[in-house]
Amino acid sequence: MRHIFPSLIVLGLLSLGSTTQAEITFLDSFESADMSAPHGNGFRWAGNNRTAVVTMDPGPREVWRNGPRDVSGPAGADWSAIDGAHSLAFFYPAGEFWSEQRFNLGRAYPEIWIRYWLRVPSNFRHGHTPPTNNKFFALWMDGYSQHGDGPTIVWNFWRQGQTDSSRFTYSLNETGQPDGGHHAHYDFFIRSPEDQGRWMQVVLYAKMSTNATSMDGESRIWRRWEDESEFTLIGQTTGKNFSAPPNGPNGWHAGYIMGWSNPAYAEDTVWLLDGFTVSDTSLLDPNDTRSRLSPPGGFQVQ
């Protein structure tokens, strides 16, 4: 079948329609229970510590921890996903500092949007031992923090005053610069005990600088609770040198979720994550949650 120059009328309508949908390049709701499965656009889950795909079918169970697994969770645990039957759990045993999931985006994103659901542990109390910062999310180009020449953004949450609640901050390395320190953003990011067990949906945005001198790099973070219909901006930074490192990549390329908890937790504490989505266009439409078809394979032209 040979086609020549399709109708411009049809083209115009299709083009208008396609601009209203976020260009999702990766989405994992963990329903495959296989974090090694191939995904679109080269994304891959990378190194981890104390993370596992969990389900409540028929009870609390781990079904993937660096490989297939079938291990019962503690009696009484509620590991219900917000969508489907599976989610990714981050385990912080009492007194332990580290649970983390790294990822490689598969390509460089000059602008990136990341969205996911995160459940506050049902027994969440922010640790009291200083320094009280917990890592929340990190994003970089060529290497994490001092391990690369390019920028790194790290979102954190600290103890809110003398309470069990948390406030939200960020720290960053601009390209070729040392750590710029922590910057306060948003008070009572998580309230304890009020927000225990609640799901929040997070949207992160980062934009690289146009060039090495333009100082127009940006990052933002929004959040909505499950019962909220709109996102709230809880942090932003603008006018930063987020230029590409001299040897590339030309954009954001890797990161980690959660990570080191400096104060640790007094009790075994489990965070759940679901619907991890990556896009190069806005993900602020809360209704855009469908798991889309992967791109066709073996695409060739002759």
């Binding site: 329903e31 495959s32 191939p38 798991s291 078809l293 992967s294 791109p295 073996g298 032209v301």
Partner: peptide
């Protein structure tokens, strides 16, 4: 003239299987 070829996707972005009939 160019000829483009491809293979139908067999899964969704979250890794779940998809039928050709979908």
């Amino acid at each position: 003239t160019v000829t483009l070829t491809w293979v139908a996707p067999t899964h969704r972005a979250d890794g779940s299987a998809v039928a050709l009939s979908d």
